[in-house]
Simulated scan of single mutants.
Amino acid sequence: MSMGTTGMNGTAPAALIGWDDFLRVELRVGQIVQAEVFAQARKPAYLLHVDFGAELGVKKSSAQITHHYQPQDLIGRQVVAVVNFPKKQIGPIQSECLVTGFHDENGHVALCVPDRAVPLGTRLL
């Protein structure tokens, strides 16, 4: 099936990158240890505390994942996050990582997760 000039989500395909470009993005597995409603966010979001193991420790992230998840159900879940973005001020907190996910057919985010437990801090390669 050809998708022509747009991808399945209606956006144009990204430009090709080299292996070195991919290696610059540090995607690591972390475990959510705390999740709470982020009341100060402009759009509905949770404030997540994600443990990436001894090397990286716990990092905070704002995540707009309120449609599919409740805070108490996120505790203990492993997620994939970008850990080498600069910190970003979001309201009163500094987001220290970007938890990854995919938009479903209605535009709600489903988390990108490993299909089995892996050691915290493991890098995606």
Rank of each mutant, 00 (worst) to 15 (best):
T66L: 07
F52A: 07
H67S: 11
K60R: 15
D20W: 02
L98S: 09
A14M: 10
H108L: 00
Q31N: 02
I17L: 15
V118T: 07
L23I: 02
P86D: 15
S2A: 11
D51M: 08
D115T: 14
G7H: 00
G57F: 05
V25F: 06
S62L: 02
F85Y: 15
I17F: 02
M1C: 08
I32G: 01
K59I: 04
T5G: 13
A45P: 02
R77F: 03
V25A: 14
D20E: 15
M1G: 15
G53R: 04
P119T: 10
A45H: 04
V25R: 04
G101R: 01
T66F: 07
R28A: 07
V80D: 08
V113D: 00
G101S: 08
A45C: 08
A14H: 10
V25H: 08
Q94R: 07
Y69T: 11
L23D: 09
V118Y: 12
K43V: 05
D73L: 11
Q72W: 06
P44N: 08
P86F: 02
R24F: 01
V33I: 15
S61L: 03
G101Y: 01
V83F: 10
H108T: 01
L120T: 09
F102G: 00
N106G: 04
L56Q: 09
I90H: 00
V58A: 06
L47V: 05
F52W: 07
L23A: 14
R42F: 02
V82Q: 13
A81E: 10
W19N: 05
V33D: 02
D104R: 04
H103D: 14
M1L: 11
A41L: 03
Q64I: 05
A54L: 12
E26V: 10
A117G: 00
L111T: 07
H67V: 13
K87E: 15
T5Q: 11
Q64A: 15
L125Y: 10
D21W: 03
Q94L: 12
P86V: 11
D51H: 08
R77W: 06
F38Q: 00
Q34C: 01
G30K: 01
E105C: 02
T66D: 09
A110S: 06
A63H: 04
S2M: 03
L27W: 01
N9M: 12
D21L: 03
Q78M: 15
A81R: 03
A12D: 06
V58H: 02
E26Q: 15
L27G: 01
C97S: 05
V109P: 01
V79S: 11
I75F: 09
K43T: 12
V109E: 03
I65F: 04
E36S: 13
G53N: 08
Q72M: 10
A54M: 06
L120P: 04
P114A: 09
T6D: 05
D104L: 04
L16D: 14
V83D: 11
G57R: 07
D20C: 01
E55P: 00
F22H: 06
K88G: 02
N106S: 12
L125D: 14
